[in-house]
Design a protein around this nucleic acid. Structure first.
Length: 403
DNA sequence: AGTCCACAGGAAGGGCAGGCGA
DNA sequence: TCGCCTGCCCTTCCTGTGGACT
């Protein structure tokens, strides 16, 4: 019989079984999607394109702004960070100073408004600013003065740039793309990254021409390319005898179905390994990938829900407790019930509508405007998760609200 | 063809928390 | 400390919408 990982009630230290057992992982860090490897397979063309665009920085010139687009998990951010690391390495001892700033515009409370974007960039260059209270133009001027205090090139990478654009428009991009005209010593160069292929078309023509000086498209990986990527990581990440070849094939195939998402493939591989280890199995097998697939989906959605404000959670609980295809009016009635029973302030239907929209954007639910003829126009709302996940969400929210 | 419904969603403004300068 | 300014969250008010019904 397999010895339990954790010794309970036998007098031994409960962790001794875990420590004694050999780990399936050799270096778990390389299986993380944020890990930057020494080489990025199947992205030679893109690396060479980006390098040739930013290379003039090494001779003291300002590189053109670059706009990079491609679906999720195609290696856009990774490739950019890889190229910039190489750039910094070469430029280590050079006279002209090059700095880079990576900002994820989708991060709530970090860079999801123009104010927060400039506050974040100021913090990056060592200027602490309050989270609120200052006029945005004061922050803009402070940023301007700070970077222009010496000769330097700053490369700003705005990841998920479409998220910020959707929220505040393209004024901030206009300001950033014009900033070089006013700077005396420093220069900035922008790299915009997005999953939204149509994003550039929505921009003002002036912003479009300056941001889209150079455009690079990242095509999705196919199953074979994903397999290559995974094999590279498996070599460094796992003790190879501990992992079935079928596992790599399955992870690659599943991720290829999801528009060639390498991040998904790596997550599947890592979580499958974690599950195998947690179960005390000696090898990562196909069954662990199946379990990983479900776990990743559930974890992701539950993490989002747990971090939502109480009002959004109450609205979601109302939706869960409505019929399968519920309408805005039904949700609002249920929501009011929940608020009354739980002593929560009732927001207006207008605001609840916005909260529903926000959760739609987070892919927690789907809402579609429908017309019911003389019975008015409304939105049909349904959860965009499986029954299993929906039950898990219900159980979590049940502990927070009475109904 | 006109009416009607139940909202959607834009615009404007209020209240609050927080920073700044006098 | 106070008045003023800001961003953010929210409400109020308003117009627009589209298809069933008359």
């Amino acid at each position: 019989m397999q010895k339990s990982l954790y010794n309970l009630n036998n007098g031994e230290n409960i962790f001794s079984g875990y420590v004694e057992r050999k780990s399936l992982f050799k270096n778990k860090r390389v299986l993380s999607s944020s890990f930057i490897p020494d080489n990025i397979p199947h992205r030679d063309a893109e690396i060479s394109q980006i390098s040739s665009i930013i290379a003039p920085a090494l001779r003291g010139y300002t590189p053109n702004n670059v706009f990079i687009y491609g679906t999720c998990g195609t290696g856009k951010s990774l490739t950019v960070q890889f190229v910039l690391n190489q750039l910094h390495e070469v430029n280590k001892n050079a006279d002209n100073e090059i700095k880079s700033m990576y900002i994820n515009c989708k991060m709530k409370k970090v860079a999801d408004t123009e104010y927060r974007l400039f506050a974040h960039m100021l913090k990056e260059i060592g200027h602490d600013v309050p989270d609120t209270g200052l006029p945005t133009d004061v922050l803009y001027n402070k940023f301007f003065e700070t970077i222009d205090s010496k000769k330097q090139l700053i490369i700003i990478i705005l990841d998920e740039i479409d998220a910020l654009f959707k929220k505040v428009g393209d004024e901030f991009l206009y300001n950033l793309t014009r900033i070089n005209l006013e700077l005396k010593q420093a220069q900035i160069s922008l790299i915009g990254i997005t999953n939204d292929l149509s994003f550039l078309n929505d921009l003002d023509a002036r912003v479009k021409s300056s941001l889209g000086e150079e455009e690079i498209l990242f095509k999705p990986y196919n199953a074979m390319q994903l397999k290559d990527i995974l094999m590279n990581r498996v070599k460094e990440g796992f003790n190879q005898s501990d992992i079935d070849n079928v596992v790599v094939n399955k992870c690659a195939a599943l991720a290829a179905q999801e528009h060639g998402d390498a991040r998904r493939a790596l997550d599947l591989l890592r979580v499958a390994g974690e599950l195998a280890e947690r179960l005390g199995d000696v090898k990562v097998e196909e069954k662990h990938v199946n379990m990983a697939e479900e776990k990743i989906d559930i974890d992701k959605i539950i993490e989002i829900i747990k971090t939502q404000p109480k009002q959004s959670q109450a609205v979601l609980y109302a939706i869960i407790n409505c019929d399968e295809k519920c309408l805005t009016g039904d949700v609002f009635e249920k929501y009011k019930d929940i608020c009354l029973k739980n002593n929560i302030k009732i927001l207006t239907q207008r605001r609840v509508g916005d909260l529903i929209n926000e959760m739609d954007m987070l892919s927690i639910l789907t809402s579609k405007v429908i017309s019911k003829g003389r019975y008015g126009r409304t939105r049909a709302i349904s959860l965009s998760v499986s029954d299993n996940v929906s039950n898990k969400i219900r159980n979590i929210l049940k502990t927070r609200f009475e109904l």
